[in-house]
Amino acid sequence: TSEDEWQCTECKKFNSPSKRYCFRCWALRKD
């Protein structure tokens, strides 16, 4: 669900929880 998505701190895109990197800008997920 969208509620589980995380928001990239670099480009603000919301990504799948299973992705460690942002799909748009490839920044590593910040915990």
Rank of each mutant, 00 (worst) to 15 (best):
C25T: 00
R29F: 04
E5L: 09
T1K: 00
C25N: 01
D31I: 06
C22N: 02
T1Y: 01
S16D: 13
S18D: 08
E10N: 12
F14Y: 14
Q7N: 02
C8G: 00
T9I: 05
S18C: 10
Q7D: 03
T1E: 05
K12W: 03
C11G: 01
C11Y: 00
W6N: 13
K19Y: 03
S2D: 13
S18E: 11
R20D: 10
P17L: 08
K19L: 09
Q7M: 14
S16C: 07
W6H: 07
S18V: 05
Y21S: 12
D4N: 12
E3F: 03
P17K: 02
T9F: 12
F23G: 10
S2C: 07
K19A: 14
Q7P: 02
K19Q: 15
W26H: 15
E10L: 06
Y21C: 11
P17N: 01
P17C: 00
S2K: 15
E3L: 04
T9K: 05
F14C: 05
C22L: 00
W26F: 11
E5T: 11
S2H: 09
C25W: 00
K13P: 06
C22V: 00
K13E: 11
D31P: 14
R29V: 11
C22W: 00
S16I: 00
K12T: 12
W26A: 15
F14N: 08
D4F: 07
K19R: 13
E3W: 01
C11T: 02
E5N: 12
E10T: 09
T1N: 06
R20V: 13
Q7H: 02
C8F: 02
K19D: 14
S16G: 13
L28K: 14
L28N: 09
N15M: 05
A27S: 10
A27P: 10
K30W: 03
W6E: 02
Y21E: 14
C25D: 03
E5W: 10
C11D: 01
K12I: 04
R20P: 14
C8I: 02
W6K: 03
C22P: 02
F23Q: 06
N15E: 14
